[in-house]
Design a protein around this nucleic acid. Structure first.
Lengths: 222, 222
DNA sequence: GGAGGTTCTGAGAGAACTCTGTGAATCCGC
DNA sequence: GCGGATTCACAGAGTTCTCTCAGAACCTCC
């Protein structure tokens, strides 16, 4: 599902917008300040950020720079030509003037996403801020790509396919290693350790050990 | 099983809706006021709240805020555009206008649950505010996950499978411990004690001792 | 109220399990 | 061929779990 980050210092606007977009089928998170937005983007990896031009704590240009490469769509209260030009020069991918209507906003969102990502996300598994693109053989956490070896990738893929379900070391060995592998399951421990170091080295933790049972991949509070 | 909380100040509507949804296979609890609803949600951890927009004691926005992160589906008597927009701006996940038909309501319920939880809740046992997910090997009380060892988990699973029925220590030993276990039933006492400390440390108490008989798991007044 | 059986809970020993560093062997691109 | 990345085994340290034991508290019946 496409994830949006709404940034606006007015709680009313933020909540109205979030609820509306959520109803339109997007996964929406929100932030009240630019600083919060930068943090949230790092943690949650939104596909697009909707950003109020006038934020108290940071100017638009700086925010856009820090959010790169996540695309940004500016929301601006005024509709003068000067503002439009300035909005674009700030590096935004598009802008919408308030008050806007929902159809227009959604159309703009989809247009930006089409331009920047090319494709809707098929074959992409996500668990919390972690995304695994099976076709592209790429893993990102919070938007930044991770370097990962083939075996690590297969293991992560298996865990993410079974997110929320505990898988035993024996199951992992059977599915992730070649059938003629004849070592024992301790190799799984080792690779879980590698994976944790690469993809799960800060909160929220996604790979959980279930003592005596196996491992489970899970984002908190779901 | 999926648990719904129906909130409506009219007893007729409340009971009709509860009965209908119960018949459709949901676990339904209900409340007449917003205050009651907030309490019930804290105690019983419903997966979704069906909330009448017009409640006498609290406005919708406030209720939604207090229920977070439990998803809310609004029920509204009017069907004007103004109301729809207001419903969404209140932060609800969806709304349904009365009178609605059952199929539509159920479809909306399932859609919201799919959006918010990501997974249909199969194989999840619940007793009062306690939920046990066999596949994910996870236990939550009132939504927050609990740390639980394998034997504790098997014991809890057995008790919850037999909720409302008294099981003897001998039965427990036979079902929860390995067949070659050769200690006596006092180990069951010990583990019941562990479980109580972890999952039943505050009211309402769910694990009850039946002196001379065994133990029974039961939520009060359900 | 007392006796006798039953239940509760804390302490601790030992077993089982998990984590991670080290290092050897192998693979792969340049 | 060389250097770096990857795969895998192994072992010690650390953590978690299981189970026993024993005294205190409790319940039931007389």
């Amino acid at each position: 599902m496409t994830r949006l980050l709404v940034v606006d210092d007015e709680a009313t606007v933020r909540e109205l917008l979030s609820a509306t977009l959520r109803f339109a089928g997007f996964d929406v998170i929100s932030a009240a300040t630019a600083a919060e937005a930068v943090d949230a983007a790092a943690e949650e990896a939104p596909d697009l950020v909707l950003l109020d031009v006038m934020l108290p704590d940071m100017d638009g240009f700086e925010v856009v720079r820090r959010l790169r490469p996540t695309p940004v769509l500016f929301l601006t209260a005024r509709d003068g030509q000067a503002d439009k030009i300035q909005g674009l020069s700030l590096g935004a991918d598009d802008y919408v003037t308030k008050p806007f209507d929902l159809e227009e906003l959604i159309a703009r969102i989809r247009a930006v996403l089409r331009r920047t990502t090319g494709r809707p996300s098929d074959g992409v598994l996500t668990v919390g801020p972690l995304a695994l693109d099976a076709e592209g053989h790429q893993v990102t956490r919070g938007g930044s790509p991770l370097r990962i070896s083939p075996t690590e990738f297969r293991l992560l893929h298996y865990l993410m396919e079974n997110a929320g379900r505990v898988v035993s070391k024996a199951q992992i060995l059977e599915r992730v290693w070649r059938y003629d592998f004849n070592g024992d399951t301790s190799i799984v421990d080792t690779y879980i350790s590698y994976l944790r170091r690469k993809v799960d080295d800060h909160d929220p933790k996604l790979i959980h050990t279930v003592h005596g049972m196996g491992y489970v991949m899970r984002a908190p509070t779901s």
